[in-house]
Structures are given as structure tokens and as C-alpha cells.
Design a binder for these strands. Structure first.
Lengths: 196, 196
DNA sequence: AGGAGTTTGTGAACGTACGAACAAACTGAG
DNA sequence: CTCAGTTTGTTCGTACGTTCACAAACTCCT
């Protein structure tokens, strides 16, 4: 809406765009403060800035990606990160044969350089894209060197001390969930028959 | 546990491994039936099979990946899929210059061959790894040719008719959520000071 | 056989998220 | 100014997910 130069918008429009109920959207926004005007709606530019500030979009975040296999490559190249203020400051991999390899103008470094990287840049978030077997070890090392936010793509539950945040994205699980629903659609098949 | 030859296990062990409360785990398992034995626990092999059957692991699922950029490549190569019964039957991309390119022994086909692919194989799940701008169009076409389960990696809300399942994985959002918590850790800083 | 020790399955309490609905507050026309 | 129309902010009822806690059911030892 900002790009399109729209000045103001209602909670209904925002809700539709976000795919949620308008009451929920209004309530959520109300936690940030009263940024709307009754009978009018929300001023796009103002609200946009307030949200950006609240979720930390106004500052840059430094991330380190560990495990530069196919997924790591994809993450390193993912344009969606930089556009939202995430800057990849290092790509690390334990595999000796990958050292120095160039990925989008950044060369892969050894995993044991993690501490040096953290010392050099501030590192806010560590991304684990290694095989499951290596994930906990990488995670432990990250915690040791002071990283407190971790995004884990390995299909494992990571053990971390209190104060460390882990988010897990398991690609296979996502497919599994869809497959589960798909199975449910097919199985009962009572009398559902519309729009072939 | 199966691989390690462990015969039986308690809800407590399973809960620890899954990272949830044991009561919740037991209740969840109870929805599948009473597969445990009081005073003993769950028989690993039996429970494992029952879960596999329930979530559809006993059958093979055919998936089609659309958008073979960096992420699409990574998904096509991801070993976690095949090991859980997901078989990629086609890789599609709208970009003419990518046609015929080989990815893990499978050549990239034109997106408009989607219908032919669906006719040739049964296709259970469509995976969208295109830029955001193309996602809705790809989605619409998928729905047209009869795909009812979609995994969407593009940062957009997809509009689909009832009966079609969409799951969204937004990599940037995951980072954003971590960044939000990170900001919260740093901001208030009242008197928390332990284990540097 | 009986009792001590385990562990499941579930009923009940708790907290929280969600959506409906409405008062408060704004705009604009007459 | 007043009134009709619009849209926010919030209250309230409901539903649901989570956890506690305990009876039922099992094993093993004596």
C-alpha cells in the first residue's frame, strides 16, 4: 500500500490481505497503541512505521549461516532476507572441500572460525542448515560464543539453555502435515462431490 | 529408537525427545487409540507403525515443485523428503532458459506442462518456490488441474477455494520473529544478569 | 498371592486465543 | 448543528489447547 501511494486503509482491508479476521487484526494492532482513527481507518505510512519499529525492522540484523549445502546456498541467496534488514555476515561449513568457495560474493569459511566471526561483527542470529546429526553440536557452539537466537532447519529438537531462542523449520514436516490432511480428504469420502 | 533396537519407551522419554509435556503427548497419542500399556509404556515398533499409518507415512506421495531457483533447487535435492515417502515427480519453471537443465537426474520442464504432469502421475502436493509476484498465478493453475494441497514458500497469502489446503513457510518471517524476541531481550534490560 | 513401584489414559481446572457485537469517535452532507 | 454512515477499540462469551492430578492397570519382587 505504501508503494501504491494509498494514504489510508481500514482494518477490514488489512485483515483480508493478511488472511485473518478483522477483529483479531484490530486487537493485535491495539497492543502497539491506538494508531487508528474511528470512522477513518489507519494511516498507511504512520502505521507502517510503527509496526516496523515494533518488530525491529528499523535496525539491521546480522546473521550467520552454518551448513552451506543446497539449503544453505538457497538461504545465502534468498533476496527476501536483505530486503527486510537481514545481512548475512558469514557462511560457515565444516566440510574442508567447501572452504573458500564463492557464494554470492561471499566465501565459505571454516566452522571453527565462528568465534572470530562473532568477534568481528556483532551476530544476532545463527541459522543452522546442517544435517540433523551435526545440528546440536553447531547449536552448542553458537550458544558458547554468545548467540541467543537460532533458526534451525535441521529435523531435530535442539537443547538450549534458558534465554536462548530457537525456531524450527522442518520442511518435511510441512509436507507431512499436508499429506495428513490429504489422506483425510480421501479416506472418509462420504458425499462430498462438488467442483471437480 | 527403532534403529537403536529399543523395544519399549515411556511417554516421558517421548515427550523429552519431542520437546513437549508428557501429559500432552499421552493425550495426543490417545486420539490414535490405546496403544500403550500401563506400568510399561509404549512398544516402539508397534507405536511407530500406528503413527506412520495415521499420518500417511505408509504410502508414497507425489509432489511437484514449481519455481526452480535457489530454493527450488534445494528442495529438489532435499534428502529429508524421499526418506519420508515423498517423491518429486516433476520440476517446473516458467523461465525458458532453464528448460532441460538437469537437477539430481531430473530435467526441468515448462510450467505449462503442469496439466500433462498431473495426467501422467497422480500429484498429491504442489510446492510453490517462485517469486511472490508469480505465486498466485501458479496456485490458481494448480487448483485448476486438481491439486488440493499446496506448500507455499513465496511471501504471499494465497487465495484458494474451499477444500484446498495451503501451508505457508515464510523464511524471512521466521527470522523476523527471532529478531523481534532479540530486540525484546536487549531493550528492557532491567536487572537480568546471569551466566554471561 | 500380595504389595510396592511404574506408567498410561483421562477428567477437571486453568489460561488463553478467537470472534461477535457494541459503544465511542470520527466524517460529511444537508 | 444534527443526523446518518463508517470504523476503531474493547468487552464479553465461547471454544480450545495445555497442564495437573489421579484412578486403573501393569510388572516385579518377596
Amino acid at each position: 500500500m505504501l508503494d501504491e501511494g494509498i494514504a489510508t486503509c481500514s482494518s477490514l482491508e488489512l485483515a483480508a490481505a493478511a488472511g485473518v479476521n478483522s477483529a483479531k487484526l484490530r486487537k493485535d494492532l491495539s497492543y502497539l497503541g491506538s494508531y487508528g482513527t474511528r470512522g477513518v481507518g489507519y494511516e498507511v505510512e504512520y502505521l507502517s512505521y510503527q509496526i516496523a519499529r515494533e518488530i525491529g525492522l528499523t535496525q539491521d540484523w546480522h546473521i550467520v549461516i552454518v551448513g552451506i549445502g543446497n539449503l544453505g546456498h538457497a538461504l545465502a541467496n534468498y533476496s527476501g532476507f536483505s530486503s527486510r534488514g537481514f545481512r548475512t555476515v558469514a557462511l560457515l561449513d565444516a566440510d574442508e572441500s567447501r572452504q573458500g568457495e564463492d557464494v554470492t560474493g561471499m566465501s565459505i569459511r571454516r566452522f571453527d572460525e565462528l568465534e572470530a566471526v562473532v568477534a568481528e561483527y556483532r551476530v544476532d542470529i545463527g541459522v543452522i542448515a546442517t544435517p540433523a546429526i551435526s545440528a546440536q553440536g553447531v547449536c552448542d557452539r553458537m550458544v558458547e560464543v554468545g548467540i541467543r537466537s537460532i533458526l534451525n532447519f535441521a529435523p531435530t529438537i535442539l537443547n538450549v539453555p534458558q534465554g536462548v531462542d530457537v525456531r524450527r523449520v522442518d520442511l518435511a514436516s510441512e509436507l507431512q502435515i499436508l499429506a495428513f490432511h490429504e489422506q483425510r480428504k480421501a479416506a472418509p469420502g462420504p458425499d462430498i462431490e462438488e467442483s471437480a
